[in-house]
Design a protein around this nucleic acid. Structure first.
Lengths: 249, 249
DNA sequence: AGCTTTATAGTCAAGGTGACTCTTAAAGGG
DNA sequence: CCCTTTAAGAGTCACCTTGACTATAAAGCT
């Protein structure tokens, strides 16, 4: 391997000039389930490189903030949602991308985050020229930089976490039907689930959802009105809700 | 939130001086199972801050390498193993730690990696003064910096991945007995597993392990000689091998 | 030889899951 | 207004996995 320069080890007796300074950014893979499709929040690039291509929203980590704080700040800026609203959204570190050539202009190490938001918000960027907007997953050309790989990793991670966590409720509004919750699984996994079995699994898992008392029905749909539920206190799913093999949707 | 300075967004029309340069390092949480205990590879700090405390091995990411390459290079340096040996070890990105105050001297963003190695290697650092050595998990004081948190995250991640992947074989030598494999689970999870049930689960999972033909026994132990197995081609575990609740070991 | 230790075979009941059927309650159309 | 369509919700049944447990085999130890 490359012989490290003097002081290029752990910052123990370090020389402040012995390391290469990198730019550190955050990239956001923001998902929602909308119109029965998985949708992704993207921005269109106005300049080279990758001018005109879609890219993940993101930006630099500022000097006095952590990557997580930067991610939440960027999420608020790109969605136009209030800070308090954004504070309640599910935001989770995905992984860090550090290939030396991932940005042709300079050395940029990017910490990627995955966010899950309910359908409600209208994305409108806050007066920013390059405002973000929702696009159905897969309906855009190749993304800028290594963002296709980041998005693929994020999708895989979300799909996996639906199996063994109660994360699916993060895609839903505060009160939701079991049909809407099932839609989340079907949309993210791209499969069709058996309604009665799904219902049984969710209701018999303690703390996954809790029934809403009030009027036990919801208007708007075509079939029999469904009861409403809220997210429960549980975060893990024991035993897990395993993704079925075949049955493409 | 903080108003970003001009150009402090995504590097689109960026100003090379508009962002704060950070140092980027890698930290390694290296685990092995040795003498029926989970052991961690640590280095003793020779200088302030945290002089004398144990710390995770690690170092700076060099200008032309990715974080993953840096992690594997550091792993080779700290263990004294050959590059080819290290190339076959399980090394996996954990997550990135970026709290502004995690290093009191300067702004350091660290990408943490988890490595799993079999018992075999003698750690001897390659002539380096601060050579790394194995310590049983939990037998050291507070680690330097935020390394206690990193190690806790790594332990949790490894424990979780044992449930739904075939990762446990990464702790074993090329040929191993089912008893040794069970030891891995028991040591990482801190529980006791039922032997016949564990055996049934492993053998009925296609591709988890494959029997070694030759002499179907191994000397050295006290009981009946055990058959030898190699790691199979499978990486995932469907259905998973779930961690039991109670039964502390 | 007898005890201990570990591997390996096998049994049995409880619980979870997949595949299905049936009923109920709404919306939409002729 | 009746009939079809759609989705919610109740319930059944067989199969598979799992946890708990018993039994046997083959080594080392005293």
């Amino acid at each position: 391997m490359t012989a490290p320069r003097p002081g290029a080890r752990r910052p123990d007796g370090y020389d402040p000039h012995a390391f290469e300074p990198f730019a550190v950014t955050v990239d956001l893979a923001v998902f929602t389930v909308r119109e029965e499709r998985l949708q992704v929040l993207l921005v269109q690039r106005g300049q080279e490189p990758y001018q005109g291509a879609w890219a993940l929203p993101g930006g630099f980590v500022l000097p006095r903030e952590s990557a997580g704080q930067a991610a939440r700040r960027e999420l608020a800026e790109e969605t136009g949602l209030s800070d308090t609203t954004v504070a309640h959204l599910h935001l989770e570190q995905l992984r860090t991308y550090s290939d030396p050539d991932r940005d042709p202009r300079m050395r940029v190490v990017s910490v990627a985050y995955t966010a899950l938001v309910p359908d409600l918000p209208e994305p409108r960027g806050g007066g920013d020229a390059a405002h973000a907007q929702w696009l159905p997953h897969g309906t855009y050309g190749p993304l800028a930089f290594d963002h296709d790989a980041i998005l693929a990793d994020a999708h895989e991670r979300v799909g996996a976490k639906l199996e063994y966590t109660c994360l699916a409720t993060a895609f839903c509004p505060p009160e939701f039907t079991l049909g809407e919750l099932r839609q989340v699984y079907e949309t993210v996994w791209g499969v069709e689930l058996d309604r009665p079995n799904f219902r049984r699994k969710v209701l018999t898992t303690p703390g996954f959802v809790q029934a809403v008392e009030g009027p036990p029905r919801l208007t708007g749909g075509r079939g029999k009105p469904a009861a409403l539920y809220r997210a429960g206190e549980a975060t893990a799913l024991h035993p897990p809700l395993l993704r079925p093999e075949g049955r493409q949707k």
